[in-house]
Design a protein around this nucleic acid. Structure first.
Lengths: 145, 145
DNA sequence: GCCTACCTTAGAACAGTTCCAAACATGGCA
DNA sequence: TGCCATGTTTGGAACTGTTCTAAGGTAGGC
């Protein structure tokens, strides 16, 4: 899969030097419903650029996050996962036993926002909704929320 | 501030041996709108039990989380914060610049839930809503959500 | 008051991430 | 086309937060 031209263009127009390493990282993160760790990205990026270092992967992921091209997901113990799906509103569903992470569409989630006094004077940039539970493979039985 | 009897009783009735160390940790976490790190808890618990070790603080915090007496908050980089406010529904508001973390009541947040096909067969235990933004001290200007 | 299972301890180990300084390469400019 | 300055990459060390370990200590049932 190649990276769609608009992304590279967008990045270049923000002053990004497009290097093979950065291109490799960005290409790994094309596609929705994918939640790779930095280690996963490193491993996959090596298919294109075998000598790419983990430090570069972290640098690039950090830049993509800062530019709003991907999201960090810190739902559980263990490494941060990176979510390229910033274009469609969605939330996350995570299994607290095995760590499985799914995107869920905001069905049943209505109007999550914060305004007026409730915002405590903050400028709100983002909302993060994470459902925690047990997936079909891990849940024997239990309470429903 | 002393720990309310019901909490110690509740813990003891679940087979907890009540030791001075565990009591000290639990007492630090009494009170709402407090979001201490393990390090913070350690420091404060030493006021009561100077020789308490960080390992014990981690052990105890982990047990309290498992028992549902406190919540872990992993909203940002850095250490996990522990939130004793499990009794009133609330969400979190975090400043992405300075890390300030506030409880916000679910004003403006309506019915956050997940059911039927959207739950992907998961048993949902919990929902976590985190608003990210910039606090009055850190926000120069910017977009509102 | 004794005994045993559970708890605590210090410090080592570990995982994930960031930092560093030296080598390298992109892309503007001649 | 070739050169240069600046931004980028590298491997490895450093760092932070957390968990593990094995030895000693203690709460609480009897």
């Amino acid at each position: 899969m190649t990276i769609p031209a608009p992304l590279v263009d967008r990045l270049r127009s923000r002053g990004w030097r497009v290097t093979p390493q950065r291109r490799a990282v960005a290409e790994v993160l094309v596609g929705d419903h994918v939640h790779f760790t930095a280690e996963d990205v490193h491993e996959r990026a090596r298919a294109a650029v075998p000598e790419i270092s983990l430090a570069t992967v972290y640098n690039t992921l950090g830049e993509l996050v800062a530019m709003g091209e991907i999201l960090e997901v810190r739902a559980a113990r263990g490494p941060v996962r990176y979510d390229p799906n910033v274009h469609t509103a969605h939330h996350h569903l995570i299994c607290t036993i095995c760590g499985k992470l799914l995107d869920v569409s905001p069905v049943g989630v209505e109007k999550v926002s914060l305004y007026g006094a409730a915002a405590h004077g903050f400028v709100i940039d983002d909302v993060d909704v994470t459902f925690r539970g047990r997936c079909p493979d891990c849940a024997p039985a239990g309470s429903a929320f």
